[in-house]
Design a protein around this nucleic acid. Structure first.
Length: 726
DNA sequence: GCGTGACATTTTTTT
DNA sequence: AATGTCACGC
């Protein structure tokens, strides 16, 4: 029915003219500049459905790329809701997921073992540390993190070690490490994240028949969040497109918040030049937020100098003003949020439709504490992901060893966990043996004796025992036989970890269920279920779906909030050096001085545009940071918002004399409210007599005032000194 | 070889 | 504050 002309019409009916133009674009590449809340995903998915329904392309010829698994899933769900045919032939996924798919299919041509393993960021870091140790590199001079940054930066720019620019001794050494690192990965049959992309890029680049095949196949390539592509990803897309395919790129330069990891908005300009040829459609009507919120967002982002230019508008009314709250402390801020959140809930807004946003993960702690004490259900996104937990990584390392014994990283992770009396000395010797023979640690272990041999036998036993088991049972067996379960059972704090290991078995069961249909229907040679599960674990970090049904307040970083929307949004911690983050304003690595700050401003723009109806902005005068109290001043972003859309909330009524004072500094104004004292006030002290307050600092129990007495000035802690108004 | 505790270090965002 | 690293003693 939906393939009838009526179906097409209905498909397009609810779109505005710009959206419809984008969806029904002829066979040409185009850049869709889609502002926040302008129906970006809708346009993308409808475009795919329209292309298929009008018979311009079969599902087989579609390649749709996103950045997050969530976005990919969302896209598939929407497509299958509109298209009552199977979407299996389509390639829809993240860059990394699709790269992985390609490499699994053509592992031989790509020069990888069939069971190659994927290193996540922390696996990669430990591999680098291990390598540097073996190379005798001074880790003081070359920090492993910096090395990782160096390697990934080059890979994401499409450069191998030999292409890395190295002028001085330092960077030449880095390039050497890079080269040795790649060699180590190759030897061990593992690939880090950027390697997936680079390797698949090189595969197509060098293998003409294969390139031809995929270029012929994917006539329509659609890219979501195009502003987030890095150099390599853009080249990857170009390679897939070849000379005849059409790229439909949707993006918003104002929402580019991943430049810090290589994303380059210059790709948008390049794409317009190389593919779209001026074929640009702007989606500027926002269907999400009320007017005041958009006004704030527009005004803020207008202060960025480097933009393609775009202004959102809405047909909805102005709506409510944006509420700004200045708290005394982070705890005060948290309790304000708790109060407001409960009020909103009483007014009928579900907790799940409210978001609590912050710049960095560490800030969630205080908020969580307050919410917990108040009994408000909440859910924290991000932070430690399921597949990144140590017990889970241990279990996965055992599994990796079963399918791919050359994986030295996995070997070292579990060879002595739980402890088996195999210490540093033994491993050193084993490493030497392996290096001399040019083999993996595993192979060396198989030919040695003692405890190491016992470990090798254990792995072999497990391998035999699990060979014919379905994946979930196999994992259950590994957890028991490896001794992990016993270890955590004996640990008094191990209950949670045990539970997570159980959860891992469940995750495997779920995975097996979901992927069974896909795999059997696929035309490609399928890797083993275990290999696919391990890749899944590495690529998908594990958004725990649990508790999805519960109505819970949503806590997340601003980065994590991109693409989401909520009825009410709280943006907390709006203080200088926190948001904008000081690191971002310092780094001048880019092409212009304000690059870091502009990215922070885009981040703020993203945060603001998450809100549909209500937006709260809060900052605190003092905050616990790195174990000590820090005093912060309000974020510059607050003063970049138009005053007329703001409503300043205060806990207590501001005393008249303070309110009327000509441009009182925030500090002075606050002193009056907080303590009952203010600068200029006369006070009496039991010992020093009467005096006048001339300055103050600190907050709450830390507050001190400087008082000018007859015999000199004194700093007095309000909590201790017995002062009274005079 | 292993566990403990002192000490230092580190604090952005993440596919 | 929290985590990792290191040195020490068993």
């Amino acid at each position: 029915m939906s393939s009838s002309p009526d179906g097409h019409q209905r498909l397009l009916d609810s779109l505005n003219p710009e959206q419809r133009a984008a969806v029904t674009l002829p066979h040409e590449s185009a850049l869709i500049l889609a502002g926040a809340g302008s129906g970006k995903t809708r346009v993308l998915t409808t475009r795919i459905v329209w292309l298929v329904q009008t018979g311009q392309v079969s599902p087989h010829g579609i390649l749709a790329v996103t950045f997050t698994n969530k976005a990919a899933k969302e896209m598939l769900t929407r497509i299958s809701a509109m298209l009552p045919i199977n979407t299996r032939g389509m390639w829809v996924g993240t860059f990394h997921g699709l790269a992985n798919r390609l490499l699994r299919t053509h592992w031989r041509e790509a020069g990888l073992p069939q069971s190659f393993q994927i290193l996540d960021a922390s696996d990669q870091l430990s591999a680098i540390k291990r390598l540097m140790k073996a190379m005798n590199v001074d880790t003081e001079k070359y920090e492993p993190k910096k090395v990782q940054w160096f390697i990934n930066g080059h890979k994401e720019a499409g450069r191998r070690a030999r292409d890395a620019e190295a002028y001085d001794e330092y960077s030449m050494r880095l390039a050497e490490i890079y080269e040795a690192y790649d060699a180590q990965c190759q030897r061990e049959g593992v690939a880090d994240f950027p390697e997936l992309l680079l390797r698949s890029y090189e595969l197509l680049y060098r293998n003409e028949p294969l390139r031809q095949h995929y270029q012929d196949r994917f006539r329509h390539i659609l890219v979501d969040e195009f502003q987030d592509t890095n150099t390599l990803q853009y080249r990857w897309l170009k390679l897939f497109a070849g000379a005849h395919s059409v790229i439909f790129a949707v993006g918003d330069d104002d929402q580019s918040i991943y430049a810090f990891r290589g994303a380059d908005t210059a790709n948008m300009a390049a794409f317009e030049r190389e593919f779209a040829h001026g074929n640009v459609i702007k989606l500027e009507q926002n269907y999400r937020s009320h007017g005041n919120i958009l006004t704030a967002a527009n005004t803020l982002i207008a202060q960025n100098a480097h933009r393609l230019g775009k202004n959102l508008w809405t047909a909805a009314g102005e709506g409510e003003p944006i509420r700004v709250f200045e708290a005394y402390s982070d705890q005060d801020e948290a309790s304000f949020v708790v109060d407001e959140v409960r009020n909103l809930n009483r007014e009928g807004i579900a907790y799940a439709d409210m978001a609590l946003l912050y710049r960095s993960n560490a800030q969630s702690r205080v908020l969580e504490h307050a919410l917990f004490s108040a009994g408000v259900a909440y859910r924290v996104y991000g932070g430690l992901r399921f597949f990144e937990r140590q017990e889970v990584k241990h279990a996965l390392a055992y599994l990796r060893l079963l399918t791919h014994p050359e994986d030295d990283g996995a070997f070292l992770r579990v060879v002595n966990f739980p402890t088996r009396g195999i210490g540093a000395r033994t491993l050193e010797q084993l490493s030497e043996t392996a290096a001399r023979a040019g083999t993996s640690l595993w192979q060396a272990a198989c030919t040695s004796g003692g405890k190491v041999a016992a470990f090798a036998r254990l792995i072999e036993d497990i391998k035999r025992a699990t060979a014919d088991l379905p994946l979930p049972e196999a994992i259950g067996h590994v957890v028991e036989a490896s001794g992990l379960a016993d270890y955590y059972r004996a640990d008094k704090d191990g209950a949670d970890r045990l539970e997570n290991l159980n959860e891992l078995v469940n995750a495997a069961a779920l995975f097996a269920e979901e992927s069974a249909a896909e795999a059997s229907a696929s035309d490609e040679p399928a890797p083993s279920e275990l290999d696919r599960f391990l890749a899944h674990a590495a690529l998908e970090a594990g958004e725990h779906q649990a508790e999805a049904g519960r109505d819970a307040l949503q806590l997340m970083t601003v980065h994590a909030a991109k693409g989401l929307e909520f009825e009410a949004v709280f943006i907390t911690g709006l203080e200088e050096s926190l948001f904008p983050h000081e690191q971002s304003t310092l780094q001048g690595s880019g092409t212009h001085a304000d690059e870091g700050l502009e990215e922070e401003r885009r981040l703020m723009y993203v945060a603001i545009t998450r809100a549909r109806r209500r937006l709260y902005l809060s900052h605190a005068q003092s905050r616990m940071l790195h174990g000590q109290v820090r005093y912060g001043i309000a974020s510059r972003f607050l003063s970049e918002l138009p005053e007329q859309v703001l409503l300043h909330l205060n806990r207590r009524a501001t005393p008249a004399h303070v309110r009327e004072a000509p441009a009182p500094s925030p500090r002075a104004a606050r002193a009056g409210e907080d303590t009952g004292y203010r600068v200029g006030q006369s006070v009496a002290h039991a010992r020093f007599g009467t005096g006048i307050i001339i300055d103050f600092e600190g907050r709450g129990p830390d507050a001190r005032v400087q008082v000018k007495f007859r015999d000199g000035t004194k700093w007095l802690a309000l909590a201790y000194a017995k002062l009274s108004p005079a």
